[in-house]
Write a protein that binds this DNA or RNA. Structure first.
Lengths: 251, 251
DNA sequence: CGACACTTTGAAGACGATCAACGCCGGTGG
DNA sequence: CCACCGGCGTTGATCGTCTTCAAAGTGTCG
């Protein structure tokens, strides 16, 4: 079986020769998951490491009081389980379910541990990946304290747009509003109301269609309460795309 | 000059022979910082990697609107700059100031990058460290969405208590309330009011003295809204200490 | 003693959560 | 073909919590 084409573009394997990469990927098997199917549950023993090839997986947890919160929605190219494995944890820290029909590469967890010892490049790539993710998580946490719901929603829409390489002048939300609200840590009602109210700040949302109409209005509304102004990659990317009549993708 | 004793206990150097470790540490110089002195500012070029030997450093940022938020307060054993260096960022993502008189080891940033390539153990230790930190950050972010201010404050007090190895039956806050409030992403007034109100939930705070009086009351108040109940190490640790009449430290 | 930083307390206001009702749509079954 | 249902989203009203603004209290240090 030939490996999915996505592996050649994965940052995880950057710096490895195509041969070494293929040899590594050999150890994995392709797995397909239906929508709403669960990959594993919170507390399950950590058996595998996954690389997402297509579709989307949500990571979530629930509190004893019944509240469910979505930590992240992963898409093609993202990986699952590396965190637990690298910490030598024995159980998964989240539940994982498919949000769409999904294919992924499945490796035994020992595979990751051993090969990150064997291949210098792999462990350095992991390190970069963790560092970047840590940064993003920290920034989002900060936003939860310093930004209003509307500002957070806008940030998220920008992120979605860039991550999926959508056209900022009009695109469809890739997930249900319920899921997005949960991902943002707010109630569906709040999210819904917010979507209509950000029209005044340059973003038009109608149904599941989003359209960045006035990026300058967005900027004045959001950036005053964001401490990473110069570095908010997503926002800059969208601005650039709108200026250049679209479609310069971000590194 | 002999290396500070703390380096022998650093998780960062775990698995390295004492000789290799000492050789590595040779490249660093000891630096002392006065209270309120700034180590670097947001946006400064990333010149150094630091290991904290004593004291405390706060990492913070401010929004264009003037709001300042503290991302973390680092203490002995913590490290600074690894995140930027491992992402090959050229400027610091936070400002860093001393909260107490502080000593640290200063390395050129290239030192970390090169040695994490040279020493397998070092990069694996970094990987573990990042993974763990990512987890903690994610959990705190989740708490910001699912927990009330009171619950968050309690979690933080527990964390402080365990991290500094204080006696849960009575200890002094190691930082000013202003700093802690900022670290928790809430207003000083909210924090102050909250401290008096958590008395009803088993924690007595008077001035800067904190005392865990009824850990079961704390548990019923907090754990219903925490999704990591089984894994909330700090809480378990405090419970254990109170049960065993104090002083079993956590791994 | 007075200045200043830090903290507490009070009152008002804003914002998001919660509860409840309704609209919309696709699917199922009679 | 229509009736009914259930999932999803919207809208309205109310409530609690946190922020904000203001003022006063506490402590330390010259």
């Amino acid at each position: 079986m030939t490996s999915p084409k996505i592996v050649s573009t994965l940052p995880l394997f950057k710096g490895l020769s195509p041969e070494a990469r293929d040899a590594l990927v050999q150890a994995g098997r392709i797995r397909r998951i239906e929508i709403d199917e669960r990959l594993f549950s919170y507390g399950d023993p950590v058996k595998n490491f996954y690389v997402l090839c297509s579709g989307a997986i949500k990571l979530y947890r629930q509190t004893p009081n019944g509240h469910e919160t979505t930590a992240e929605v992963l898409i093609a190219g993202d990986t699952i389980g590396e965190n637990e494995i690298m910490q030598s944890l024995t159980s998964y820290q989240y539940s994982a379910s498919a949000v769409k029909e999904t294919t992924l590469l499945e490796f035994p967890s020992s595979w990751l541990k051993e090969n990150s010892k064997k291949h210098q490049e792999l462990s350095l790539n992991l390190l970069t990946l963790f560092a970047r993710r840590l940064n993003m998580t920290a920034i989002e946490a900060e936003h939860k304290s310093t930004m209003s719901a509307a500002q957070q929603v806008i940030c998220f829409l920008e992120k979605i747009c860039v991550l999926h390489d959508f056209d900022p002048r009009g695109f469809e939300l890739p997930y249900s509003k319920t899921l997005i609200a949960s991902r943002l840590g707010m109630e569906l009602e709040t999210f819904s109301r917010t979507l209509s109210r950000i029209r005044e700040h340059g973003i038009l949302v109608k149904g599941t269609t989003v359209c960045f109409q006035d990026i300058d209005a967005v900027e004045t509304f959001v950036c005053g309460d964001c401490s990473v102004s110069g570095n908010c990659l997503e926002h800059q990317a969208i601005k650039a795309r709108l200026k250049n009549g679209q479609s310069i993708s971000v590194a």
